[in-house]
């Protein structure tokens, strides 16, 4: 694959990903803010573990999405 195609595919990926993430931030993250703040003030230990769980879960979810996009757009050499 030449460099022009790679850059084009990368731009498409960033655009698609950007739209998905904006929707995700507006729908999910906005609603998470308040309960997390309440938890932070009420129980720091539960907050710590919920926080880690959220980070791990979001990491796994985003990994799936980005992997799917990378494979679909042919940016990966080994798949």
């Amino acid at each position: 694959m030449n460099i022009k195609t790679i850059i084009k595919n990368l731009a498409i990926e960033l655009l698609v990903y950007g739209i998905l993430i904006t929707a995700y931030a507006l729908i999910v993250l906005r609603w998470l803010s308040e309960p997390l703040e309440t938890l932070f003030h009420n129980n720091m230990i539960i907050y710590a573990f919920v926080g880690l769980a959220l980070i791990v879960a979001q990491g796994a979810l985003l990994e799936r999405i980005t992997s799917f996009l990378i494979v679909r757009l042919g940016l990966s050499r080994s798949e």
């Binding site: 803010s33 997390l36 720091m44 710590a48 926080g51 880690l52 979001q58 990491g59």
Partner: peptide, 29 residues
């Protein structure tokens, strides 16, 4: 480190979640 710092009240998980949305695609690239 996240858990130990969060117990001490030094983690804003919302900031981390937002940063992670950009980091995920950057890390893949």
């Amino acid at each position: 480190g996240t858990v130990t710092h969060a117990i001490k009240g030094n983690v804003d998980i919302m900031i981390a979640l937002v940063m992670q949305t950009g980091a995920a695609i950057g890390a893949q690239i």
